[in-house]
Design a protein around this nucleic acid. Structure first.
Lengths: 246, 246
DNA sequence: CGAGCGGTTGATAAGCTTCAAGAAGCGTGG
DNA sequence: CCACGCTTCTTGAAGCTTATCAACCGCTCG
């Protein structure tokens, strides 16, 4: 496993205003600066394994990963996509409950587990931010439950594309598009299938079906062009606009 | 909607050591005591509706409820079962993201939303407990995603019964049984189906199938007897024992 | 006693998976 | 630069699990 360690100022950090540190002032930040270490891992690295010790709490600075669980016989379900500002590790727990695999080169901002537990206890700004982020993750997990439990294959793929666009917009700090968008999927068909509780074949067929109906465009190389984003959201069976509820 | 309001000392409260107040000392508790109000609702009450204002943060003192989301055309997915010590409402959000319906008579310990937001901010013990509970909820939601995405109908029903037994044991403060257990389901077949992403017919057939194989016993009236709990857990396709990971 | 509700069972149909093969993209080396 | 091999993706045909439609049972309650 090739991994590089870098140091960089928190004030320059791309996730400064969205990660667990988002609500910290300069004084809190100085403490974090001392405790953190950046580390970069190549695509495909297993960042955590179910049942194995996980000795760091880490925030994603760049890159993406899947968080998944495997059943006895090899069936796999991805329960979350981790992207910039998301975290792995849980205060008060030394063992990972999921497998985490890097989809691309990933840079983590890491804290030794014990150290982070202390930081959460002593820094109200971190505790508050952790709570908000965890509540957001909870909403995302429940949204996934709705997708997995009640949507058709076609709706699942549409919902996946819609949520992908929304997340990428959030990371870019851009508005969620209303008409045309083009982006590159960080997941293979296989990985999308594991996320949607489908087989790779069904997933591929639904991509093809959406393409044939003009709802999406597949220029090649995992790129997706959505000519009319609003129209695609109608294919998910959900009526809300998915906007913030605060 | 018939609802009664009662007052009772926190020290006497059945969820004193598991709810958001669990980590509070007597001084914090005195503050909560001032702000809280108990309220009891009959079975069937809609405690919250998706998209509607939710002006209280409430903990379940007694009773059970489902938390669900409905798609445009009426398909419903239950994303969580709420039981003693669980909460509804989210600090910083005035609108419910889900429908919440009482399965039995429910007693809530309620705080006016604004008041609770202040309490979380000012009381580290509450903030810390909220985080732990939310992380637990997150694990439960992801576990549900695995069930919905990758399990067969038979495994789903088995997994549901197993998790039900574990939760009831937790609430009773009892050990998770290893052999024989009997309990009463708080949900109808319909509600179980909505929780497992199945139809009522398939759910019923799987109950029958498990009964015919001697894995469960159905004495009538929503009662379930499990002669060999360990054996039932093997039917879920999961290999772990679901025990605490801390 | 009959209506209504929750639950069970049966027959058929639909949607997704499985099995199988071929096409397209991508990196490597001649 | 292109050929080769490997991986990813797509497409087809058949089978199976679950959904749908429909009927019936048993219990409760007026």
């Amino acid at each position: 496993m090739v991994a590089q360690t870098r140091t960089s100022a928190c004030s320059e950090c791309p996730i400064r205003h969205r990660a667990v540190c988002a609500e910290c002032g300069t004084d809190d930040l100085a403490v974090l600066e001392m405790a953190k270490s950046y580390k970069t891992y190549p695509a495909g690295t297993r960042l955590a394994s179910e049942g194995q010790p996980l000795m760091h709490f880490s925030s994603f600075v760049a890159g993406a990963a899947t968080m998944s669980r495997m059943l006895e016989d090899g069936r796999r379900q991805t329960v979350g996509l981790l992207m910039a500002s998301d975290f792995i590790g849980r205060p008060g727990r030394a063992v990972s409950a999921y497998d985490v695999e890097a989809l691309s080169e990933v840079t983590l901002c890491r804290f030794e587990r014990r150290t982070f537990e202390t930081l959460v206890k002593r820094t109200p700004a971190i505790a508050a931010r952790m709570l908000t982020m965890t509540l957001d993750e909870l909403d995302a997990a429940r949204e996934l439950a709705v997708i997995l439990g009640r949507m058709t294959a076609r709706e699942k793929v549409a919902a996946f594309l819609v949520s992908m666009v929304r997340r990428l917009a959030l990371i870019d700090g851009a508005e969620v598009p209303t008409d045309e968008v083009t982006f590159k999927l960080p997941l293979s068909r296989d990985q999308i299938a594991d996320h949607l509780g489908l087989t790779i074949e069904t997933t591929s067929r639904q991509f093809t079906a959406l393409r044939k109906e003009g709802l999406i465009d597949l220029p090649g190389g995992r790129s997706v062009r959505i000519p009319d984003f609003q129209r695609l959201t109608l294919e998910t069976g959900e009526d809300d606009d998915g906007g913030p509820l605060d």
